[in-house]
Simulated scan of single mutants.
Amino acid sequence: MIRHTVVFTLKHAAGSPEEQAFLGDALILERIPGVEKFERLRQVSPKADFDFGFSMEFADQAAYRSYNDHPDHVAFVRDRWVPEVLRFQEIDYVAL
Rank of each mutant, 00 (worst) to 15 (best):
A13L: 15
A13F: 03
A14M: 00
A14I: 14
A14Y: 06
A14H: 07
A14R: 08
G15W: 10
G15S: 05
G15F: 10
G15C: 11
S16V: 01
P17V: 06
E18A: 15
E18R: 08
E18C: 10
E18G: 01
E19T: 05
E19G: 00
E19L: 06
E19D: 01
Q20K: 13
Q20V: 11
Q20R: 14
A21N: 02
F22S: 07
F22N: 10
L23Q: 08
L23C: 09
L23E: 05
L23D: 04
L23T: 07
G24E: 14
G24K: 14
D25V: 01
A26T: 09
A26D: 07
L27N: 12
L27Q: 14
I28Q: 12
L29R: 09
L29H: 02
L29Q: 08
L29A: 09
E30S: 12
E30F: 05
E30C: 00
R31A: 11
R31S: 13
I32Y: 04
P33F: 04
P33E: 05
G34I: 06
G34P: 10
V35H: 03
V35F: 00
V35E: 05
V35A: 10
E36H: 04
E36A: 04
K37W: 06
F38H: 08
F38I: 14
F38R: 07
F38W: 07
E39F: 00
E39M: 10
R40V: 15
R42S: 02
R42Y: 02
R42P: 04
Q43C: 13
Q43W: 06
V44L: 15
V44I: 15
V44Y: 02
S45K: 01
P46A: 02
P46E: 05
P46H: 01
K47Y: 07
K47V: 06
K47W: 03
K47H: 11
A48F: 03
A48K: 13
F50R: 13
F50P: 05
D51C: 09
F52A: 06
F52V: 11
F52T: 11
G53D: 03
G53W: 08
G53T: 10
